[in-house]
Each structure stands twice: as structure tokens, then as C-alpha cells.
Design a protein around this nucleic acid. Structure first.
Lengths: 224, 224
DNA sequence: TAATAAAGTTAGATTAGTCTAAATAACAAG
DNA sequence: CTTGTTATTTAGACTAATCTAACTTTATTA
């Protein structure tokens, strides 16, 4: 599903901002000043842009009311996010940028216009499903898996999660996982986090508690 | 040698255009209308930009006179060309774009701002010396080797050139080269091109003529 | 060398994106 | 339900990059 109109760099950034702000509440909408904050502009600038995006039928909006993306607008936003995340994978996996250094450059790369480029990049990277932050990468047709992955060490105390993969796939690590009976789908509840060494006390089944090291938790991928 | 000022996308394009137009004559200069043609704008637009670039000391220019890059302007232009050509190598070598498809996308990628990105990309690509068209890639400090490489099949009838490398480095091909006594530095004059099958009649030493196939000529890299 | 053509510049207007200051609408709270 | 605060929009102005039309300078050539 290709976007019909050619959008400017700036318009793309507004759509992306509206998308991510909308995702944060039940009604999937946002406001002028929230957008202004996010984009780092002033509200009047946003109002002008809202008029423009409304004309292009990318958002639905009425004066003084809250703002929502239309189906078309959402589609565009998701494709930008797709490009952003694929570039992040490239920067991290191939150019060896640290996971917290990739965002800034990907902000620029996401606006490069070439469908071929993204399709080939995706193939070259081996059709990754998640970016280096654990966020899911939308498909070329705009499907977005909502589930975010993180490492077990970042799960909050008291929260439960489910194993979806590992970072380190060394034999030693995989053997250890088998031994303690942890695999894809295993449910884990974080009982306690020890600040001293970053280790965790976790619960696997009812009453089956276990202590695991920081290193362990850094290599287990989970969803909440 | 980093550019001092932050330049816009557009300013960068003007500098690049002025650079390539200047390269084409003895006096290393160009004119308003040549630039307008190249950038696909109208002459008055160019005049405005010339004033701006003069203020920033990137070109030397006086009303109604011809235009030259300053040392600083040349430096900026060369760094953009460096980025452009490195991206071309990436697109060709890694993403498998054909050599004639890479230019358009590289035109966009060359404006991405991140020194780290380019340094890491260069390393990732194995410090290539030439882009897929045979044009030399400037170093990070702005040194540009002026010699352009091409394949032997593209040398004009009657012209002489010198071997600098091969594309195909299979044992069979290298053995054949050795057998006919062709290596790095060998001088070759193209006597005749046979349009029928693309084969060439070449002269190696005085009176030592030889016929070689199109396939052969496509795999020998030369400079003129 | 004077007339004419070509190249280049100035003047004035336009569009996209931004701003500040002022006006207006929506909301919240006594 | 009126009043005050906050959010939003309008009005008017600015900058960068572009254009057309008109004017000026340079180059050509008869």
C-alpha cells in the first residue's frame, strides 16, 4: 500500500509524531501542544500544518478538537517507522553503532525516498523482526506487530513476562536454559531486583523461585 | 578538515555542481547559466545563491564574472562527493543495485550528516578506492586521486591506457593474463573495436598485436 | 565600432515552514 | 454559572528557495 502523495520531510515528521503520541492513549488521538512539544516547534506552527494534513486527508481534525490519523495517514506513518527501524538495524548490526547511538542518524535516513532501497535493505539484513531497541519492524504492506521485546533485566519488579528469544545463542547458554527449563513461551515473574549486582530473583512456576545473574538477564528476550 | 559552517541540502548541491562543472576546463571555473542547467533552476535563482555562497567564502565570484570554488568550498564539495561515492559502493556491493541504478539514491544519501556514519561505512566496505563507475573516492581528509578507472571495453579506438587491476580474479583469468604477459602497469593501445561481438584488437608492445574477447575486456580495469 | 544577441542581474512575487503577539474558545472550579 | 486559566487559533512578519518579467552588462559580428 503505497502513499499516494509525495510528502515533504517536515510533513513526514508530523505524521510520525502524531502516530507515536496517539499510540499512548485509548482514543488514539493527540493535541496541538503535545505535537508542538514533540516536534520542538510552537503551537501556531502546528495549527498550520494540521490544516495542511487535513486537506491531504492524512488526519481527521476540527478546530479546537483533538487530532487523529486517518487510515491513509497511519499507513504513511507506519512506513516511515519501518524505514527508521530497518536503518537502525543496519547501523547496529552492520556498522556496529551502539544501540543508543542509532536513533539520531536513523531520523535522517528514514526520509530517503526509494522503495527498492528499503526492500533490498530489508533482505540484506535478513528480514529482521525487531530493531535494536526491541521495537517491532512493520512489514512492507504496513502490518505492525504491536508487541515490544525487551531484555529480562529491564522488566520491572513484580511484573510478569514471557520468553520470546535470546540474544546470546552460544551452546553454553542454551544448555543452561534447557537445564533450568526455560524456553520460548516460558512465563517469568520478576520477584526482586538486586541493585548491587543487577541479579534477579525470578519465579518460573508457582513457588518455584530462582536467582539469576545480570548477564543471564541481559541475554533473555521477553515481552510483557 | 571539517567544514566550519552547517550547510543546507540546497547549498551542498550548488557546491557539488560548481565543483563538477569547474573540473571540466583549464581555469577551474564555471558560469551562472551552466549551474542553472545542471541544478535545473533558472539563472536568477543561481545569482541569489552565488551571493550567499560568496558571503560564506565558499566561492570567489564577482558580478558578471565567472565563478570558482575557494579552498574551503572545494573541501566541502569533495567531502560530499566522498559520501556520494561511498554510498554508491554500498548500494552496488551490498544491496546489489546495478551500477547504473545507484546514482539517484546516492544523491539523497550524500546529504546525511554524521561523520561517524561515513567513517564506519567506509570501514565496513573495506576502504574502497573507487565507486562502481570507476570514479575515485576521496579520503576523509579530502584527498582526491584524479585518475578515473574504466574497463578496457570502454576505451575508445586509437586510445592508449594502462592496466590497474581486474574485476574477475578467478585463477583461470589470472593464468591467462600471465600467459599473454599482461599485469598491473602494462600499457595497452586499442587498435580496433569489432562491433559484431565487442572484441578488441589491442597492441601490447610495438608491433605485438593481439585479439581479445569482450569478456576479457570487461574484466580488465585501466586508466587512460 | 555600432548594433544586436546572449548572458547575467534586479525587482517583485510565491510557497513552505517557522515565529511572536494578540484574540478566542474550552475547561475547571469555586 | 460566572470567572479565570489554559489551550488553540488568527494575524502578521520573517527566511530560504524558487519563479517571471524587465533591465543591464558583456560578447559577437557585420
Amino acid at each position: 500500500m503505497k502513499p499516494v502523495v509525495q510528502l515533504s520531510f517536515t510533513e513526514e515528521n508530523y505524521l510520525k509524531a502524531i502516530f507515536s503520541l496517539s499510540e499512548r492513549n485509548e482514543s488514539f488521538d493527540t493535541s496541538t501542544s503535545e505535537i508542538a512539544d514533540k516536534i520542538k516547534t510552537k503551537p501556531p506552527t502546528v495549527t498550520d500544518m494540521l490544516r495542511k494534513l487535513t486537506e491531504k486527508k492524512l488526519i481527521s481534525y476540527e478546530k479546537y478538537k483533538r487530532i487523529q490519523l486517518t487510515k491513509a495517514g497511519k499507513q504513511v506513518a507506519i512506513l516511515i517507522i519501518r524505514k527508521h527501524r530497518l536503518w537502525e538495524v543496519f547501523l547496529h548490526d552492520k556498522l556496529e553503532f551502539a544501540w543508543d547511538e542509532v536513533h539520531e542518524v536513523a531520523e535522517q535516513l528514514e526520509h530517503i525516498q526509494s522503495e527498492q532501497l528499503i526492500l533490498r535493505l530489508e533482505k540484506y539484513l535478513g528480514f529482521p523482526q525487531y530493531d535494536p531497541h526491541g521495537d517491532p519492524i512493520p512489514s512492507a504492506s504496513g502490518e505492525l506487530n504491536e508487541i515490544k521485546r525487551t531484555i529480562l533485566s529491564e522488566v520491572q519488579e513484580g511484573k510478569a513476562c514471557q520468553v520470546v528469544g535470546v540474544k546470546d545463542s552460544s551452546t553454553l547458554f542454551l544448555q543452561y536454559l534447557q537445564q533450568i527449563n526455560v524456553g520460548i513461551g516460558t512465563k517469568i515473574k520478576v520477584i526482586e531486583k538486586i541493585p548491587f549486582d543487577g541479579s534477579l530473583k525470578i519465579m518460573l512456576k508457582k513457588d518455584h523461585q530462582l536467582s539469576v545473574s545480570k548477564k543471564f538477564c541481559d541475554n533473555v528476550l521477553v515481552t510483557c
